[in-house]
Simulated assay, not measured.
Amino acid sequence: MRRFLRDNSLTLAFLVGFLVVLVAQAFAGQAEFNSQLVSEGLEPMGFRSYVTSSDFAVDVTENWQSEYLQFFLYIFGTVWLVQRGSPESKELHRIGVESDEEQRIGEHAREDSPRWAADRGWRGLVYSRSLGLTMGGIFLLTWLAQSVTGVAAYNEQRLRGLQDPVGWGRYLASADFWARTLQNWQSELLAVASMVIFSVYLRQRGSPESKPVGSPHHATGVEG
């Protein structure tokens, strides 16, 4: 068990942190939502009712979709785009999908390579892009979930104000949907750009996200 925890400590630590923050968000969100309800002369909502409400769901899913968009764009973008001096970039001469030999595909696969890496058919084609496709798929699903929960939360707010609800298609063209979406997208894009350029000149000893402390600024694709 101790070895399992050590070997998977990075994933487990972030998952535990995710659950702690999600619960904290639920309590904070309930307090804020109930404050709004009370100000409108309505009864406050219990915790269980709040965490199963569209208001909580849309807040969660809009953050998830932006995070997975970030990973999707970064994974595919780094195939063709580079940043001189950054460990977040691959080496400047390796732009593109690289050769089968470099990627250990087909007859170049080794004994310890994943089984589908040696397949020259659709399995190998899909597997060679499976990480980006998975991130892109999760992004689309969470964006869809955001739109569904968002229109429900939006209509609840309209009904409290004695306004008619709107349909899903109309909501997709609304300012509320795009304000929720774009405020997350811009922050994710800025965060990635900052990480890429800061890692050219700054260091974090022992981290694979940083170059070794003594590496020159122009060293590219080198991890510590």
Rank of each mutant, 00 (worst) to 15 (best):
P212C: 04
A173S: 09
S49T: 15
T52D: 03
V82K: 12
R180C: 06
S9I: 10
T134L: 09
F71K: 06
L202Q: 08
L37R: 05
F76Y: 07
I75W: 04
Q83D: 06
L73N: 07
V38I: 07
R48D: 10
G132N: 07
E40I: 06
L37A: 07
P208F: 10
G121A: 08
S215V: 06
G41V: 05
V200M: 01
R94G: 15
V21Q: 10
A152D: 10
S147F: 10
E88L: 13
F71I: 05
V58I: 13
F56A: 11
A24E: 00
A13W: 00
E107T: 13
H218F: 12
P165A: 01
F71Y: 09
G221K: 10
Q146K: 01
S174C: 11
A118E: 01
F33H: 05
F177Y: 02
R120F: 07
E101W: 09
L131H: 08
G167A: 06
I197V: 14
M1F: 10
R2C: 06
Y50I: 02
E91C: 11
S49V: 11
L15E: 15
G161D: 15
G46Q: 04
V38K: 07
S53V: 13
T220W: 00
L5W: 02
T181N: 08
F56P: 01
L19P: 02
H108M: 12
R48K: 12
T11K: 14
G96I: 08
R84T: 05
V126D: 05
Y201R: 14
E101S: 14
R3K: 11
W80A: 11
L92C: 04
F71G: 09
Q83S: 13
A153Q: 00
R158P: 09
T149V: 07
G29V: 02
E67M: 12
I197C: 11
Q65Y: 00
D119P: 08
L190M: 10
E67P: 13
H217I: 12
Q157G: 14
Q163S: 08
L140Q: 05
P208V: 09
A193S: 09
H218P: 02
G96Y: 15
H93S: 05
F18R: 01
H108G: 13
S9V: 09
H217F: 15
W64G: 03
K211Q: 08
Q83V: 14
R3N: 06
T61E: 02
V20P: 03
T78L: 09
D7A: 07
P44N: 02
I95E: 09
E91K: 11
E62P: 00
M1K: 11
T52W: 13
L81V: 14
R84K: 07
S215T: 04
E43N: 15
L12G: 03
T134R: 03
L69H: 05
E223I: 15
D59I: 02
M45P: 00
L140N: 04
Q65D: 12
S199Y: 00
S199V: 00
R110H: 04
G106Y: 06
R104K: 04
K211H: 03
E188K: 12
V82G: 07
T220Q: 00
